[in-house]
Amino acid sequence: MRGLARSPALHFLVLGGILYLLRAGLALPPAASRPVAAAIQASRPAQSAAPAAGPRLVTISAPQVERLREAWRRSRRRLPSAAEEARLIAGLADDEMLYREALARGLDRAQPVRQRLIQNMRFLRIDEGGGGRDLYAQAVEIGFDRTDPVVRRFLVEQMRLLVRAGDRPDVFTDAELEDSLRRNAERFSLPAFVRISHVFLDADRRGEALEQDARRLLARLRAGRVSPDTAPELGDPFLPGHHPALASRSELAKIYGPDFATAVMRLPAGVWSGPVRSAYGLHLVWVHESLPGEPPQLADVRGRLTLELAHERQEARLAAYLRDLRRRYEVRVELPTASAATPREASR
């Protein structure tokens, strides 16, 4: 399974196979189910059978640390530094503690877990002839609920969800919302907007003469006080248009490119400016109106702000819970004796 697990095909296949089986209720040909069940039972990693060993002790074994290092090496072609490795190990320990807390709350009896285990049994053709309920019981018997990585991930994530949510829904006063608004002003404020007209000189068309043509035309526009409504006719056609609607810097960047957008936001209104460079050539720009950025109005952003604040609270709850878990549990880390590259002193 290990090598196959790398193949994206397997996961689509599993998904498809699961759905197919569930819909079709096919009778599967009998297969060597006993050896498979025995193999799964034999492969259960020691720490998952932990209850007798003391539920408050989490051991990160040397093989686990090796696997972490190997995965890191595969992504980055180097081994993790001491600090990076410590973070990885801490993450692993957090997951294990959350997993045990999830089991303690009986989350492993939820329907999605049952469904998943039944599907696994069918997919692996371990069907001793019972219905869904018997399959689930068998799955538990051979310890599938403790070894299946998806079940484990589900339980860890459910635990995070529950801890985040707390005991009752979050309600915020206006004062709290205003405070959050102040702290996150950047994200919620209205950016500056500008409305321009522009004359375009096409780099594709004018080649070497581009700069000179632009300077000449700018002089002409200024001297002749040419109106921005008619001026574009004096240059080349800019197909997205010469009189864009009010636009923010990022909207302008989408059409003209980032340098043009940044430059235009700084131009004075009511005069011809330029030449300003875009991805396509040079532009002579007339700013009709300029709206400065504005601080956000609570009424406009109340919904998003409430959810943002709720999210902050939830993260804080989770962080506090994990801190508490780390106090209540003991985490022992067994570092590998021979490491691949740099020597390491045992931490903790």
Binding site: A104, R105, G106, D108, R109, R114, A137, L162, R168
Partner: peptide, 29 residues
């Protein structure tokens, strides 16, 4: 509690949710 009973019956909501699911704040989860 975990560890006391290997064979579970149909899912029950997490114990702290209370007996009445309709009011359970965890619905929002």
């Amino acid at each position: 509690p975990w560890g006391n009973d290997a064979i579970a019956d149909p899912p029950t909501p997490p114990a702290f949710c209370g007996p009445d699911n309709g009011n359970c704040h965890a619905q929002s989860l």
